[in-house]
């Protein structure tokens, strides 16, 4: 079962894409253009808000942000 935190991130993405009604856990958010370079910064901020984890922007591993599954594993697994 998905954590509350990742559901918050899923809702955040969907709120910016009213043409969509869901985001699959393994859908690549960047390749599908659900997240671009401008909204990536907003996404990082949203993850920080939902997880309480402070993210060092200069040491980001982009693979942690590619899908909802990878975001959940990197930032919400222990929640």
């Amino acid at each position: 079962m998905a954590s509350a935190g990742i559901e918050e991130i899923r809702s955040w993405i969907l709120s910016r894409h009213p043409e969509r009604d869901d985001v699959a856990p393994d859908e690549n958010l960047i390749e599908s253009r659900l997240v671009d370079s401008l909204s990536f910064v907003e996404l990082v901020y949203a993850i920080e808000g939902a997880s309480g984890v402070e993210i060092d922007f200069d040491n980001i591993d982009i693979r942690d942000f590619q899908t909802l599954s990878s975001i959940e594993k990197a930032f919400f697994a222990a929640v």
Partner: peptide, 12 residues
């Protein structure tokens, strides 16, 4: 990005 409800991302 400048709306009050947006995350304050510009300083990043």
């Amino acid at each position: 990005l400048l709306t009050p409800e947006a995350e304050p991302v510009l300083p990043r």
